[in-house]
Design a binder for these strands. Structure first.
Lengths: 220, 220
DNA sequence: GGTTTTTGTAACAATTTGAAGCATTCTGCG
DNA sequence: CGCAGAATGCTTCAAATTGTTACAAAAACC
C-alpha cells in the first residue's frame, strides 16, 4: 500500500503502533492519517480520538470488521472516512483525493508560507524552495535525490542514520542487500557541500552504522 | 429516509429526477445532496459531475451496485462520499455529520466568483480574469491548459504534485500510462514564466514524483 | 469553409541515478 | 608493523527519467 501510494505521488511514512505514530506526527509534516483499528497496544479508535483532541488532520480508518457499529463509531470519533478490508487500492486513492479536494475548498491556505530555512556551516538550505545557498548567496544546484538525502540528514542532525533508514526516507523503500546507492549519493553530496571532500566536516561516516550529519543546524 | 433524517434535525427536500434537482438547487439553499445512481433520465454520475461544475456542495452517492468501479467513479467525479444499499440509516447520519464537521467553515459556495489575485516572483496571477502580469503590468498570455496547470501548482504551493494528480486537477481524468502531456505543458509554462527555463526557480522537478511550485505565494 | 490557436504524440537530447567494479581506508590480529 | 578481510569511496557506464523540438490532430474562431 505504501509503495502503491508513493507511486501515485504521496510521501508515506509507516509506523507500527501508537507510540511510533505520535513520534511521526511530531517529526514530520503529516497531511493525512490512515489508521487500522486492530493494533498492538491502543486500538485505532483510541488513537483516533486522541489525535482529534489536538488536531484536525484527516483520518481514514481501516477495518476488517464489516460491522456497522464499528463504522459508525469511527466516524463519530472524528474519522473522515473508513474502508473495509479487503479493499481496492484505487478506492483508497480515490478517497484520499476526495478528502484533499474537500480540504482545499474550506481553507484558503494559499496565504501560509512558512518557507522554512535551516542554516549549517556556511550554508543555508531552503526546505521550501529546495535551494542551497552559501554565505554569498550563490545557489548550488542539488538534484532531487541529493536534496532529499541532505534534508533527511539535516532533519536527523547529530544522529547516525543507517543506509537502510536513509533509503527508506529518500526512496520510501526498504533497501535491498548490498545497496550502495546511498554511498554514491553521499559522495556526490560531499563533493558539493564539503570544502574538502576528503575530510568531511558535515557528513561523517560512522563505520559499521551509516552516516551522520555533524554540523549545528539552526532554523532560520 | 427523509423522515428519519428530519427526526434528527435536518430539513429535507426530495426530488425524483435531474430536472427537479436543478430546480430545488435554484430555489432552496441546499447544504448537502444525497444522490442515487439509478435514476430516470440522466443517471447519478452525470448529475454529480454536472453539479460539481458550478458548486462545491457536498454530495453523498447511493449505489446498489457494490462494484468497486462504481464507487471509484463516483468519488472521482467529485462526490464526497458514497454508501452501498442497503445501508443502516445511522450510518448515513454519521457520514452526513462527518461531512458537516469537515466543512465547518460554511456551506456550499459557488466556485467561480473569487477574483482573487496571487503574487509570486515577479508575477501577479489574477485567478478570476485568468490574467498573468509581470511587475510592469505587461500581460503574458496563457492558454487554458497553461493557466489551469499554473493555478493547480500555485494552489498546492511548496508541495510536490504527481503527474497523476496534475492531470486529475487539470483535465479531471486519471492519466493513462506514459502520459507525457503534463511534461510538455510544464515545459511551455516554464518558457513563459521562468527567467531561465534551464534553471527553473518557480516550478521544480521532483524526480520520481512530479513537479513542485517553489516560490512564496501571497494573496493580493 | 478556412484560419489560427492549442494540445498531444513521436522522437531525440539532456540529466539523473544506480550497478559494477576497482581503489582506498579501516579494523583486528599475529 | 604488516597483512587479510571488510567497509567505504569513487569512477565508469548504461538505464531510467525528464526536457524539448517538430509536427499533426483537435479545437476554437471567424
Amino acid at each position: 500500500m505504501k509503495k502503491f501510494l508513493m507511486q501515485h505521488g504521496y510521501r508515506m511514512t509507516t509506523v507500527s503502533d501508537g507510540t511510533e505514530m505520535r513520534k511521526a506526527l511530531r517529526d514530520w509534516k503529516i497531511d493525512l492519517l490512515i489508521l487500522d483499528i486492530m493494533l498492538p497496544g491502543e486500538d485505532g479508535f483510541a488513537l483516533c480520538r486522541d489525535v482529534r483532541r489536538t488536531s484536525k488532520i484527516p483520518i481514514i480508518m481501516l477495518t476488517a470488521v464489516g460491522e456497522d457499529t464499528d463504522r459508525i463509531l469511527g466516524l463519530e470519533l472524528g474519522a473522515d472516512d473508513y474502508l473495509t478490508k479487503p479493499f481496492n487500492p484505487r478506492e483508497l486513492l480515490a478517497r484520499i483525493r476526495a478528502i484533499f479536494r474537500r480540504a482545499e475548498t474550506g481553507t484558503s491556505e494559499i496565504v501560509e508560507n512558512s518557507s522554512e530555512k535551516v542554516r549549517f556551516g556556511n550554508w543555508v538550505l531552503n526546505l521550501g524552495s529546495r535551494e542551497l545557498r552559501d554565505d554569498d548567496d550563490v545557489v548550488v544546484h542539488l538534484s532531487t535525490g541529493e536534496f532529499s538525502l541532505l534534508r533527511a540528514l539535516v532533519k536527523h542532525n547529530k544522529r547516525p542514520l543507517s543506509r537502510d533508514q536513509l533509503v527508506d526516507i529518500v526512496r520510501g523503500q526498504s533497501s535491498i542487500p548490498f545497496d550502495r546507492s546511498i554511498d554514491i549519493q553521499i559522495s556526490r553530496l560531499r563533493r558539493k557541500i564539503e570544502k574538502d571532500a576528503k575530510n568531511p566536516k558535515l557528513i561523517k561516516t560512522v563505520r559499521g552504522i551509516g552516516y551522520q550529519f555533524c554540523a549545528d543546524v539552526a532554523t532560520v
